[in-house]
């Protein structure tokens, strides 16, 4: 197909792909067995590749750690932040996509540039600010930070999908007497729903991943999954890897489902609309 000598080319190509595939998959498989093995088989003098598989340890882990609460915190913080992003982001995206006004480019680029902000650079002020409002260690604080972090992405993704909608449709509605907000609500939003879903999923993934802000905000009650992991160590037991693996997969499966849902829009979402995949 591709190479001058087809036979050899194809097999070499498949070999390279298979090797990378294994490099991706084997560590994940190993991690899965970590969640399924008893604690004494995790750190042994020599690593054990074929351990006894059991889910009995899960009961003990659930007993010792409030995994359900961690999961609930994650879901609440993420869902809330995505909601804020869409609420603020959709009108902003519409303005950038459809109106001509002074400063449009500057405002658009300002919004985009907040994506480039290093979390560490604003961590201290955010910590102090949230301390003054007495919302440290709450899900609300996580929600606000995640929303701020993702707003730029959401605006730019949705804007890109709005640009694809032919303006004639709006003009037709406008001649029929529909107001701008009405057009946004009943025409634009339904038509760029794939873009909105893509933006929401990407925002949810980044929120699930967030670590630095979460680490300084959550200290006891508000642990979501990403930072709860870092606290699974039990004195003499050291780091409790089977709990860590279990929680990792609790976060992995929902994200996998969401990503499969938007798989054909993924590249466009990750580049904020710049690459139409």
């Amino acid at each position: 197909m591709m190479a001058a000598k087809p036979e050899r080319g194809i097999w070499l190509r498949k070999l390279v792909l298979a090797i990378w595939g294994l490099l991706c998959f084997l560590p994940i498989l190993f991690f899965a067995t970590i969640a399924l093995r008893p604690r004494n088989e995790i750190i042994a003098p020599r690593p054990i590749y074929f351990p006894t598989l059991t889910i009995e340890t899960w009961a003990k882990i659930m007993d010792e750690w409030p995994l359900i609460t961690y999961f609930k915190n994650s879901v609440m913080a993420i869902a809330g932040s995505v909601f804020i992003c869409l609420l603020l982001g959709i009108p902003a995206a519409y303005a950038l996509a459809r109106y001509k006004f002074r400063g449009r480019e500057d405002i658009g680029f300002y919004i985009l540039s907040t994506k480039m902000m290093a979390p560490a650079a604003v961590a201290i002020p955010i910590f102090v600010l949230f301390g003054q409002f007495r919302i440290l260690d709450t899900v609300w604080a996580l929600m606000l930070v995640y929303a701020a972090m993702n707003l730029s992405i959401v605006v730019w993704i949705i804007r890109s999908y709005m640009l694809d909608i032919p303006p004639e449709i709006e003009d037709a509605a406008r001649t029929d007497g529909a107001s701008d907000l009405r057009i946004l609500w009943s025409i634009i939003i339904p038509m760029c729903l794939p873009g909105i879903v893509t933006a929401a999923v990407i925002a949810a993934i980044f929120a699930m991943n967030e670590y630095l802000f979460t680490l300084i905000i959550a200290s006891r009650n508000a642990y979501p999954l990403s930072v709860a992991l870092a606290n699974f160590s039990g004195g003499s037991d050291g780091i409790i890897y089977n709990a860590i693996a279990l929680v990792s997969f609790m976060a992995f499966f929902p994200i996998l489902l969401l990503v499969i849902l938007i798989q054909n829009h993924l590249s466009r979402g990750l580049t904020m609309g710049a690459v139409k995949g």
Partner: peptide
């Protein structure tokens, strides 16, 4: 259009400009 943009921009300023000044 400025009304449409204002909530998002104000929110982002709150988390970039304010922390910068502080």
């Amino acid at each position: 259009p400025y009304f449409l943009l204002a909530p998002a921009v104000i929110y982002l300023l709150g988390i970039t400009l304010y922390p910068g000044i502080y």
